[in-house]
Every structure is written in structure tokens, then in C-alpha cells.
């Protein structure tokens, strides 16, 4: 199996504070990976480093390419659409994506919009949190990328929408693409994860296949994740 992502000795500091230190991480193609960790552990930072939006020391190769400027063409990241004005209609945003990303597939986008029950004539400012998250997911999955990074796609979303988003992930993830989903609430996505990567103490604390965790320890992913924090202080 080939690797879609290879991170070597990555260190990232922000305002003299070390966020990530000497991170090594290799991800194979065709997997769904849960990126778990507390708020502030560095999950979003790690994703931004992978896309090339943030810069640290060390190397990050996406599909064997370690030039950061090229990463955005291989990686589809759940951008939070902050660059758009609230009165922008969803179909306008989609047009923008079509122009910027050559791998944006209009047909896929249409299917996703229908499946996720989104009305594209709505303006961004009129969307509820859950609806906006669905738009972000549709835009992200409509690209034919090798690596998808979904940054907490389920936060503040009702359970019906959550189920739809999970189904859309299973349905639309290209077979040989890898998807990283960050979250601090594990139980709902646990059945769809091939592997879990846990970010803790400024690094990758654990990286294991989910069924291996269940087989080795006889516990669930959530229990395993929580066990790593036992004795420590929990923030939520």
C-alpha cells in the first residue's frame, strides 16, 4: 500500500508556544482516519500544516510531493467559508470552487446537495450552523482529491444531519482517497474509522487500527481514548 501522507519531524510554534513537536505521521491511501484530541491539542493546526496554510519546520509530503504550495491541489479541506460575504448565495460559492479547483466535480456537487437536502439559492448568512456545515461538507467532498481533511464536521449538529453527513462520507469518498476526520466526540463516528490517531502532549500519542484496539483491549474507541487521559486533567 502507498502513502498519501508522510510527515517527518514536524515542529510548529505559535507566539513562542510549542503546539506540535517532532511529529512523525504516515497515512496510507484508502483509509478513514479519526484524528482525536482535546480542544487546543493541535488537530486543526496539524490540518492547516498539511494543506500548507501554516508553516512549521520538518517535512510534509502529500502524495510524495513535499512542496507546500502544491498541497492544496491534492488536499480537500473543510474551509469555514469565512472569506465570503454573508449575502453570498451557496451556488455562487460553488461557482467559485469550480473556478479555483480543477478537480471540483459539478455532478458530484449536485448529488451531494440533493442527498444532504441543501437549498443552493440560500445565502450564507441565512444558514443555521448545521446547514452551513452540510454546505462545507458538500463543497469538500465534491472535489476529487487524494486526501480529505474534515475538521470537526459534527460540532453543533443535530443527530439527523450527523447521520446524513456520515452516510455521505461513506458514499462519496473515492476508494483510493484517504480521509481524516477530527473530533473530540468519538462514539458516533467510531464504526466508520479504519484507524485512530490521537494528538496529545504536542505530538502523536497513539496511531492504531480501530479493530486492533477492540481486539487487543476489548474496549471501545471512546473508552480507549479516554483511558489515555486517565489521571490527567480533563477539559471540555
Amino acid at each position: 500500500m502507498t502513502n498519501v501522507l508522510a510527515i517527518n519531524q514536524l515542529t510548529y510554534k505559535h507566539n513562542l508556544k510549542t503546539i506540535l513537536k517532532d511529529v512523525d505521521l504516515t497515512l496510507e491511501t484508502g483509509k478513514i482516519i479519526g484524528l482525536l484530541g482535546e480542544n487546543g491539542a493541535g488537530k486543526t493546526t496539524l490540518m492547516r500544516l498539511i494543506t500548507g496554510s501554516a508553516k512549521g519546520s520538518g517535512t510534509i509530503a502529500v502524495c510524495g510531493d513535499s512542496v507546500a504550495a502544491h498541497h492544496k491541489s491534492h488536499v480537500s479541506f473543510t474551509e469555514q467559508l469565512r472569506g465570503f460575504k454573508p449575502n453570498t448565495r451557496i451556488d455562487r460559492v460553488a461557482n467559485f470552487y469550480r473556478t479555483v479547483y480543477p478537480d471540483f466535480d459539478g455532478q458530484r456537487f449536485e448529488e451531494l446537495i440533493t442527498f444532504l437536502q441543501i437549498d443552493t439559492s440560500l445565502k450564507l448568512g441565512a444558514l443555521s450552523k448545521g446547514m452551513k456545515e452540510k454546505v462545507v461538507i458538500a463543497l469538500t467532498l465534491a472535489r476529487q482529491a487524494q486526501l480529505y481533511l474534515l475538521d470537526e464536521p459534527f460540532s453543533g449538529i443535530d443527530s439527523m444531519s450527523r447521520k446524513r453527513i456520515i452516510s455521505s462520507i461513506i458514499k462519496w469518498k473515492p476508494e483510493d482517497a484517504t480521509m481524516v476526520i477530527s473530533d473530540h466526540y468519538v462514539s458516533e463516528i467510531a464504526p466508520i474509522l479504519d484507524e485512530v490517531v490521537i494528538v496529545k502532549d504536542q505530538g502523536i500519542y497513539a496511531h492504531k487500527p480501530s479493530d486492533a484496539i477492540r481486539e487487543e483491549f476489548g474496549i471501545g474507541i471512546e473508552a480507549y481514548y479516554e483511558s489515555l487521559y486517565e489521571g490527567g486533567v480533563k477539559h471540555d
Binding site: K31, I32, I166, I170, K171, K173, P191, D194
Partner: peptide
């Protein structure tokens, strides 16, 4: 995979 809400690889 979609029906059972699990991963294709699994």
C-alpha cells in the same frame, strides 16, 4: 457499507 454505516474496508 452505507446500509450498515460502516467503513468500506471493514
Amino acid at each position: 457499507a452505507v446500509d450498515l454505516t460502516v467503513n468500506v474496508n471493514t
